[in-house]
């Protein structure tokens, strides 16, 4: 098998990063997610999370909507179609990687 066929070569650097993969996963399950929920569940600082959200927004994988509830500002993040496709592809490649590792492990005895 050539290197290009290896699942690792298909991994998207933007998505294949723990925090950003976590953001995409939560946004996918939640339909839309508030910044504070992401910060609490991923245990990040606001600044750190902002950087990752910016990367995903620049890549067109998430949409960011800012608004107010009363006097409190809230930022909602939702997946774009591209983000949904990227997440699905990433999960698929992870499963391929696991299958490959298990196959090699079994073959190596």
């Amino acid at each position: 098998m050539t290197d290009s066929a290896h699942p690792v070569n298909g991994l998207d650097d933007v998505v294949h990063q723990r925090v950003r993969l976590g953001i995409l996963t939560i946004a996918h399950e939640a339909r839309k997610v508030e910044f504070g929920y992401l910060r609490d569940h991923l245990e990040l600082t606001a600044g750190n999370l902002s950087k990752h959200v910016d990367v995903l927004e620049t890549a067109g994988l998430v949409e960011v909507e800012k608004g107010y509830e009363g006097r409190r500002g809230r930022t909602w993040i939702s997946l774009t179609d591209s983000g949904r496709a990227a997440l699905t592809a990433e999960i698929g490649r992870l499963k391929q990687l696991i299958a490959r590792v298990e196959t090699n492990g079994a073959g190596g005895g």
């Binding site: 650097d13 723990r18 976590g22 991923l42 245990e43 990040l44 950087k51 499963k95 696991i98």
Partner: peptide
Amino acid sequence: MTSNSLPADADPRQLLADT
């Protein structure tokens, strides 16, 4: 939580389990 990119030898099982 680390914000570094996933190392090449990171366990994909763990990543999948986390998601």
